[in-house]
Design a protein around this nucleic acid. Sequence first.
DNA 1: TTTGTATGTCGGCGTTCGATGACATTCGTG
DNA 2: CACGAATGTCATCGAACGCCGACATACAAA
Lengths: 95, 95
Amino acid sequence: MLIRSPAELGAILRDRRRKLKLDQSTFAKRIGVSRQWVIEVEHGHARAELGLILRALDALDIRLDASIEPAPARGATRPAVDINAIVAKARKKKA
Amino acid sequence: MLIRSPAELGAILRDRRRKLKLDQSTFAKRIGVSRQWVIEVEHGHARAELGLILRALDALDIRLDASIEPAPARGATRPAVDINAIVAKARKKKA
DNA sequence: TTTGTATGTCGGCGTTCGATGACATTCGTG
DNA sequence: CACGAATGTCATCGAACGCCGACATACAAA
């Protein structure tokens, strides 16, 4: 399963949790977070803590693997339009 | 590359950034974060935001893959001693 | 030595996390 | 229907995030 966004990660966590017949409460206790946290992460919370995410994955026996992208597609010719970065910056300025 | 902890993730990010000949400043600008953030994450900051981490990985053409652990090793017979969770809870109580 | 580059550190600040606890909604079952 | 279980929502609050700006250190080159 490729992970590209917090939402995808959340979906993976939810599917796996359900496959293991765990409800949110017991899952939360098992990894040392609140049930609220589980809900938000499963819904794709982008600002969740990295450490807690890794604990959650571990608790569900999910392995994370990092590898170099086969097709960069981000060639030196492309000006690189980073929508995420732009949106994040824009939100900051407004607030 | 297997990712088990924020520190391992940080090392991977740093190695890849250096391979691409990027310094922390330009890398930070490229993903829309501060240079401080890059420093902390590369040092294994556990509470970094998930969304920013994913952006950083993407900027370095690193793909994240999730797969079920071949050997659970976390059988139903094990009482499950979650050191991470215990430590996290202990820190909360003290503070 | 002086200059420049890359990295790490410090204090302060506004924003938002994650925890808690209560309540709401939707199920399926007795 | 009533009850419990699972999930989602809300308000509150201390703690920590990530940012900024300045400074510190290290190393290389002129």
